[in-house]
Nucleic acid binder design. Sequence first.
RNA 1: GCAGAUGGCUGGAUGGCCGCCGCUCGCAUGGUUGACUGUGUGGGGGGAGGAAAGUCCGGGCUUCACGGAAACACGGUGCCGGAUAACGUCCGGCGAGGGCAACCUUAGGGAAAGUGCCACAGAAAGCAAACCGCCUGUGAAUGCAGGUAAGGGUGAAAGGGUGCGGUAAGAGCGCACCGCGAGCUUGGCAACAGGGUCGGCAUGGUAAACCCCACCGGAAGCAAGGCCAUAUAGGAACACGCGUUGAUGCCGCCUUCGGGUGACGUUAGCAGAUGGGUUUUCGCAUCGAUGUUCGGGUUGGUCGCUUGAGUGCCUUGGUAACAAGGUGCCUAGAAGAAUGGUCAUCACUGCGCAAGCAGUACAGAACCCGGCUUACAGGCCAUCUGCCACU
RNA 2: GCCGCUGUAGCUCAGUGGUAGAGCGCGUCAUUGGUAAUGACGAGGCCGGGAGUUCAAUUCUCCCCAGCGGCA
Length: 140
Amino acid sequence: MTETGTNTLVTLKKRRDFLRLSRGGRRWVTPAFILQAMPDNQKNTAPSRVGYTASKKVGNAVVRNRVKRRLREIARSVISSDAPMGWTYVIIGRETAHNYPFEKLLTDMKWAIRKLQSGADLAPKSNNKHKKRESSQGAG
RNA sequence: GCAGAUGGCUGGAUGGCCGCCGCUCGCAUGGUUGACUGUGUGGGGGGAGGAAAGUCCGGGCUUCACGGAAACACGGUGCCGGAUAACGUCCGGCGAGGGCAACCUUAGGGAAAGUGCCACAGAAAGCAAACCGCCUGUGAAUGCAGGUAAGGGUGAAAGGGUGCGGUAAGAGCGCACCGCGAGCUUGGCAACAGGGUCGGCAUGGUAAACCCCACCGGAAGCAAGGCCAUAUAGGAACACGCGUUGAUGCCGCCUUCGGGUGACGUUAGCAGAUGGGUUUUCGCAUCGAUGUUCGGGUUGGUCGCUUGAGUGCCUUGGUAACAAGGUGCCUAGAAGAAUGGUCAUCACUGCGCAAGCAGUACAGAACCCGGCUUACAGGCCAUCUGCCACU
RNA sequence: GCCGCUGUAGCUCAGUGGUAGAGCGCGUCAUUGGUAAUGACGAGGCCGGGAGUUCAAUUCUCCCCAGCGGCA
C-alpha cells in the first residue's frame, strides 16, 4: 500500500544518515547516477527524505554543484509524484551526470524507483541485511 | 596591407513556464502583558568572479602573552627616489643583458672583515707555482744550473686585453687605447653618468654556501572569539586551606527539650576555653565551594556577518603610482552550502553546397580588504614600431 | 575555510652541489635428475613538472601539479 501523491521532500543533512543508507540501503545503478533507498520504520505518510551526493571524482566545484542541482531537479519532479512516501533516498551523482540528457535522467529515475519498489534488486541474490517490508508487496 | 609591441575593457543576450536562498511589506493563525517571535500564504525587490582558485605576502578584526623598550636567536627583505594603512606590491629613474625597432627581462648591497668550496682533467685551482716549450751557460752526451711566462695542452675558470717598442728569450719592463683602482671636478635629492689627474696590475668565481651591513617581524587564527541551550550531572589529579561561607559529627553556653547560639573587639569584654603581656585567637575535625591541568557530554542555536583604507563620474595637484574635494550609488550573506531544467529567437565558432547538426573558455563567495602567482574560448578599444605599396 | 607534510627503479626506502644507490622483485647463466635456496652477470630512472642561481642542480631559490595528515 504505497501512497504516490503530492509528496513534500526533506533534505538529508547529517553524515550519519548518509552512512546508514550506504550500509543498509538498497541500490539501483543507472548511467548517470546511483539511487539508494530505504523504507522508513514509521508510517508511509511521512515526507520522503532525500540526500544528494557528488564526490570529488565527479569534477571540480562547478561540476559538482551542477550535478547536485540536476539531481535535485529530477528528485523534485519524480520522487514527489511517482515514489512511495516515507522512504529515505540518496542519489549519488556520477561523472556523466553533468551533461546527460535531462529526459533520460527523468526516465531513468522513474525506472530505478519502480525497480526498487518491486524489489528487483533483491531477486538475484538473497543478500538482505534489512528485513523485507511492505515495499516488496507494494508492487504486486 | 603584413608582421609585431604595450596598456585597458568585456567574459553571450532577451523572453515564457516550473523550482532554490536571504531581505522587505501585508494578511491569517499560535505563543507573549507588551516589545517580539513561530508557522502558512500573497506582493515587491536582491542573489558568485576577474580570477571567487593557489594560500605566496601585507593589513583590519579577535584571543593569548608581555612594565615601556632594547638586545640575542630565528625568519624575511636588499640599486635609488617616491606612493601607500602596510607590503616581498605599485610608479618613476639608474646599472646590466636581449631585440633592426616599438619594447622586454633583471633576488641588482658587501668577495682588498673572516671561514669554506671549486669534482674530473691539468704541472699548477689561489700568500701562486712551472709540465712541454723558448733563451743563456756548461758538458762528448741523455742531461745539469739559471732566466722566462710569449706559445702548447687541460679546464667553466690559468693572476688584465690589443698593438707597438724592448730583450739572449721574455715580462706593465716602457708607451698608446680599453679595463681596474684612488683622489679631483661637473650634472643629479640619490642610484649614477660625463670630464680630467694619478697609480701601474695588486683585486679569479661562489653570499638562491656560512657570513657581514642596513631595515622589518610577539604568537595564533572567524573551526579566532562571545552568549544561550543540553548534559550519566557536577568526574579525576594536584595545589590552597590565609580570609569568607555551606553540610555533617563532636565541644562550650542557653533552653519552653522542638531547638537556638559560637556574642563582644583593646577607651572592649569577662559565661567559658586557650594563649599572650606595648600583644592576640574566636570553637575543633572531615567533606565541599576556590585555582590549575586532564577527562566526559552536547556536534545544536545565536552573535561575529557584511557600509568598507568601498565604488562610478567630475574638478584640482602630480611625469606617474596616488592624493584632496564635490556629487551619485548600496552591490550575496549561505551553512550537505543558494542561479537549475526546458522551450523560442538572436550572436559567435566548427562541419556541410544547403537544410541542418554540434559547441560556447577558465571556473563557484564562506570574516573582510590591498597585492602577487596560476588558469582562460573568444571579442572590442587606444597608443606605438619595422617592412612593403601609393600620394 | 585555516595550518602542515611528502613525491627517487615494479614495491619499500637511503642519499648528497660533481657520472644516483640498497633490499625485495624481474631476466639470463651456473649449481641439481628437476625445483627451491645459493652464486655470478644484466636490464630497469629526463630523481613529480617548469623557470632561475651556479662552470655544474636529485640537492639551493621561486612557481605549479599530485597525494596525505591535523584543527570545530
